[in-house]
């Protein structure tokens, strides 16, 4: 693919983000005139306080969260697919998101049975606790995976270990559910559905700042990722320290998933789908192109999914996870069918 074509596609991805972002602000169960939205965004205030609240406290943070989470998950998926040289790898395969779930399950499910207070009723304190427990859970699992990565040689072995660790985490969650109050289980299940609207106010800012720091850091990995494409032996012969590279990539991917999952719950599919879509569209596996492309594509697709989940009629009741799969799966299939020469 020529340079100019790549640039045009990149520009289009960027424009689609802008478009979906605006649509996310415009559309919703309450219809607000465009003029008022512009006024509210520019801080000129509007005559209707409810409109201001809807835009500033709901639609705007939700859109920003969706864009950041989508970009993070897509990059994380790309890193996983490259490091494991496996097209089915995604952010959830290594059990890192299961780790987050485990952390959340511990505090949500046990708070009721042990502390006697349902965490789901604690408001902001509850939210922060959930976020921290999710990050703690996923980092714990990630440390475990990183330890295993230093010990085993084969990629497939490591992949299987990761999947097994995920199963163990899910089993523990199952046991915890058994001993929990129904109210807490409900709260946990709702968290598990994933949502870009879960976090409120100040926490959104924290999430966005975190992602703005973490996402650009993945660019440092471009050369390493390209070398990893050649397989361990060739990469090593070209001077790459394989163990260190593998650890670095898995850690970067893991931290991204941990943060996104902590704030949005386990959002599935975007991480797996977006890299495939980008490889199909851009027809390259050069990470200098495919990494920024995945970032843009992930943000764009997440905004689109969020838009659909909030279409009038659904009233925001549609879980994001259903939409990501419903939208993402056909798109992946279309890309693969259309570009049959570019097998995975």
């Amino acid at each position: 693919m020529s340079r100019s074509k790549t640039a045009v596609l990149m520009l289009l991805s960027g424009l689609s983000i802008v478009l979906f972002f605006i649509l996310n602000l415009l559309l919703g169960s309450v219809s607000i005139p465009v003029g008022s939205i512009i006024d509210i965004l520019l801080g000129r205030g509007a005559d209707n306080m409810i409109w201001t609240n809807i835009i500033m406290k709901s639609r705007l943070p939700q859109s920003l969260t969706a864009a950041m989470a989508g970009a993070g998950l897509a990059v994380s998926g790309l890193l996983m697919q490259t490091v494991f040289r496996n097209p089915l790898a995604g952010p959830s395969v290594l059990g890192i998101s299961s780790g987050a779930s485990l952390g959340v399950a511990f505090v949500v499910l046990l708070s009721g049975s042990i502390g006697g207070v349902a965490l789901s009723k604690l408001g902001v304190i509850g939210e922060v606790t959930i976020t921290f427990s999710a990050i703690f859970g996923s980092l714990l699992i990630m440390a475990l995976i990183a330890f295993v990565a230093g010990k085993v040689r084969g990629n497939v072995t490591l992949l299987i270990m990761g999947v097994m660790i995920g199963y163990i985490a899910n089993a523990i969650i199952g046991v915890l559910k058994f001993f929990s109050a129904e109210e807490d289980i409900r709260a946990y299940v709702i968290w598990g559905l994933g949502s870009f609207a879960r976090v409120s106010g100040g926490q959104t800012m924290v999430f966005i700042i975190l992602m703005c720091v973490l996402l650009p850091m993945s660019f440092f990995l471009i050369k390493t990722l390209n070398l990893l494409l050649l397989g361990d032996s060739y990469a090593r012969n070209l001077g790459l320290n394989i163990k260190r590279a593998r650890l670095l990539v898995i850690a970067s991917s893991g931290i991204l998933v941990a943060v996104v999952t902590a704030y949005c719950g386990p959002v599935v599919f975007l991480g797996l789908a977006v890299p495939h879509i980008c490889r199909g569209l851009f027809q390259t596996s050069n990470h200098a192109v495919i990494l920024p492309a995945s970032m843009l594509g992930g943000a764009s697709l997440a905004l689109l999914c969020n838009l659909i989940a909030r279409l009038p009629g659904f009233e925001g009741a549609l879980p994001v996870n259903s939409v990501t799969a419903l939208i993402g799966a056909p798109v992946v299939m279309w890309v693969l069918f259309d570009k049959r020469r570019n097998e995975v």
Binding site: L229, S233, R236, L238, G239, R279, N342
Partner: peptide
């Protein structure tokens, strides 16, 4: 590893499984 990469080059028997990379890009590696 980095020093050796400038002294010994290898060609392995394993079949390279890379998609969407041009010959020029691969040689460039």
């Amino acid at each position: 590893d980095a020093k050796l990469a400038k002294v010994i080059g290898v060609v392995l028997t394993e079949r390279l499984n890379i998609n969407n990379m041009t010959v020029k890009e691969l040689v460039g590696m």
